[in-house]
């Protein structure tokens, strides 16, 4: 369970993960999906549950339980003239905060944070917030995402076609 930092090693880890999450948010806001997808491991999973208390991604209906291929297909829609739902793609501006990290014995890091995302889509502004859960793998002097869960506050009511990735 990630917690706020207690010592300098924690501080350094927190700083490194924070920089990584800021970078990820920046790629998403910039619609730079090539760079964003580059942050994931080949076997990564990206999960948006349908329910707040979802437990079993396999047996339950999700909004998304993507492998890297599905993430690539989504990204492709955003740059295709007849990806109608994504033309033009939603504009977003997001803030990441309340970041917590926990070093695991296998070298991976569990990270959690909250996000607020202002968005504009088809003439309307809106916003979404939620909590992100990560399993990060060390990669050089930075990280790769092995698992990411997007916990939306009221996921059942998602109704639009904006397809914003958080």
């Amino acid at each position: 369970m990630p917690t706020p930092p207690k010592n300098t090693a924690d501080q350094a880890l927190l700083q490194s993960v924070t920089a990584f999450l800021y970078q990820e948010a920046k790629y998403l806001d910039a619609l730079d999906y090539d760079s964003w997808l580059g942050l994931f491991t080949e076997d990564a999973r990206y999960w948006i549950p349908l329910k707040r208390d979802a437990k079993d991604h396999a047996a339950e209906l999700n909004h998304a339980y993507d492998n890297l291929l599905m993430l690539r297909l989504r990204a492709e829609r955003k740059s295709t003239p007849d990806g109608w739902g994504q033309q033009p793609p939603p504009a977003t501006s997001r803030v990441i905060g309340n970041i917590e990290v926990a070093q695991q014995t296998d070298g991976t890091v569990q990270a959690e944070c909250t996000f607020i995302c202002w968005q504009w889509y088809r003439g309307k502004t809106g916003s979404m917030g939620g909590r992100l859960f990560y399993t990060l793998e060390p990669a050089g002097d930075s990280w790769k995402i092995r698992f990411k869960k997007v916990q939306l506050p009221a996921p059942e009511v998602i109704t639009g076609a904006d397809g914003v990735m958080y």
């Binding site: 209906l61 909004h63 297909l73 033309q87 998602i158 076609a161």
Partner: peptide, 21 residues
């Protein structure tokens, strides 16, 4: 379930395009 998510749901790859139409 997986096919529903992929094609029809609000994060699907297809039915959202109908909504825009």
């Amino acid at each position: 379930l997986r096919y529903q998510e992929q094609f029809y749901g609000p994060y699907g790859l297809a039915a959202v395009d109908d909504l825009v139409v």
